[in-house]
Simulated assay, not measured.
Amino acid sequence: MKDEGWLRYAAMTDIGMRERNEDACFAGRVSGYHLFAIADGLGGHACGDVASRMAVEVLEEVVSEELSAFDPAEALKRAFRRINTAIFAFNRERGLNAGTTLSVAIVGDAGRCWIGTVGDSRTYIITSSSVWHTRDHTYVQSLVDAGMISPAEAFYHPAKNILTRALGLEARVVVDLDERELSPGSVLLLSSDGLHDYVPGDLIQQIVRANDPDTACRKLIDAAREAASTDNITVIVAKPLPGARHP
């Protein structure tokens, strides 16, 4: 667990029931901002673990370069483009189909969050009264959007792991961008689907609000294991420090 600036945060990953961990994450300070990211290499695709590591490595490099010249939203766009290009080129050179999801939050010292997502790894902003998270790029989410099933039905749908968008599989990719506020009393959570495909949102909300970031990470992973998660499980939890004020 780290205290940096006005935030306290922790990151944790667990191999779960898989033979190898294809998740990768980053949590740290870059160019005056907090940068948090989780990538989940695609199971069943060659070198999914390589793709997820490439994603977070290129992300850190590009964001550190671009934040000095561009606003965070533009830096995110450029980072996702570079990541997709790098993994796509890696695939073409080797005849592979490595791919990865990626969800990223750049957090400014005023509490503003710039969030970019491809795939079904998620970024959450959780308060005492609400749970907001990024939109999954999955077949099941498309059914929810079309009104064919409810969000509750989506949680139990057998095809919820089918992605409609990922990094590295095509020459170009569309990135979802969001802007949110991380206010005092709220919690920033990033997770791979090994958590949120198995643990209900109300329990996630309860765990992250009741515990410090390190304890919350451990309890989230425990909850996913208890729910019989069959995937790698990676989580990042960040909270404003008690009594902290934005600079």
Rank of each mutant, 00 (worst) to 15 (best):
Y9G: 00
A10P: 04
A10K: 00
T13N: 05
D14Y: 04
I15R: 03
G16S: 14
R18M: 12
R18N: 03
D23Y: 00
A24Q: 01
Y33A: 00
H34W: 13
L35W: 03
F36G: 00
L42K: 05
G43M: 05
D49K: 06
V50D: 14
A51K: 03
S52R: 01
E57H: 15
L59K: 09
E61D: 13
V62H: 06
V63K: 00
E65W: 07
E66V: 11
A69Q: 09
A69V: 14
F70H: 09
F70Q: 12
R78E: 05
A79T: 07
F80K: 01
F80A: 01
R81H: 10
N84T: 15
A89I: 13
E93R: 09
R94T: 11
G99C: 08
G99E: 14
I106P: 11
D109F: 10
G111L: 07
R112M: 12
R112S: 15
W114H: 14
D120R: 07
R122N: 13
T123Y: 01
T127P: 11
V131D: 12
D136N: 13
T138H: 14
Y139I: 05
Y139G: 03
L143S: 06
A146W: 07
A154M: 10
A154F: 09
A159K: 12
T164Y: 07
R165F: 15
L167H: 00
E170I: 10
R180E: 14
L182Y: 02
S183P: 00
L189A: 03
L189H: 05
L189Q: 03
S192D: 10
S192T: 06
L195H: 00
D197E: 15
V199A: 03
P200N: 08
P200A: 10
P200T: 13
G201M: 12
D202I: 14
Q206R: 15
Q206K: 14
V208R: 00
P213R: 04
C217M: 07
R218Y: 00
A223Y: 01
A224L: 04
R225S: 09
A228S: 13
A228M: 08
S229R: 01
T230P: 01
T234W: 00
A238I: 10
A244R: 03
H246K: 08
